[in-house]
């Protein structure tokens, strides 16, 4: 036997406004949470160079030429934080050292990788499973389960 057709209740303007603002707050919370928790973006590390020259940084003459065309130089750059929170750059301010020495840290814990994979699989399983149930309800309601 077909289910009775569902008629959603009419929502007041005040109710819709509150819902809309709540949704907006949820969107911000969902997207800003990883930023505040530092979960977005990969871990970074930095190479240490004893020789602060292009060759010491592993740059060949062709690379050096392109760095220089882009306005960069070799040599050490020292950034010190002052008490008022501002940064003071001493040494070679146009040095490419920050760019050349920057590296990603790809070390990871296999356990956390497995947990993440499990969460994603579980999430999709639950959503597909419940959706299938809801889909059958809709078909039943509209087409008498035919």
């Amino acid at each position: 036997m077909a289910k009775k057709r569902y008629e959603p209740p009419q929502q007041s303007i005040a109710g819709q406004t509150i819902d809309s603002l709540f949704l907006l707050a949820l969107v911000f919370a969902t997207l800003f949470a990883p930023l505040y928790l530092g979960l977005a973006g990969g871990g970074k590390t930095s190479l240490e160079f004893k020789d602060q020259t292009w060759a010491g940084w592993g740059q060949n003459p062709a690379m050096q030429a392109q760095w220089e065309k882009l306005g960069y130089t070799d040599g050490a750059k020292v950034v010190t934080k002052k008490e008022d929170g501002t940064e003071e750059v001493t040494g070679n301010a146009t040095s490419a050292v920050d760019l050349v020495s920057s590296r990603f840290d790809y070390s990871f814990d296999p356990l956390w990788l497995a947990i993440t994979a499990l969460v994603v699989i579980l999430y999709f399983y639950i959503v597909f499973h419940w959706s299938a149930k809801e889909y059958r309800d809709v078909i039943d309601e509209k087409f008498n389960n035919k």
Binding site: V27, T30, L31, V127, F128, W130, S131, E134, Y135
Partner: peptide, 16 residues
């Protein structure tokens, strides 16, 4: 094709 809950989730993926 899939159902309401998946649709709601996909809609949010798209908007984000």
């Amino acid at each position: 094709i899939v159902g309401p809950l998946m649709a709601f989730n996909v809609g949010l993926f798209l908007v984000f």
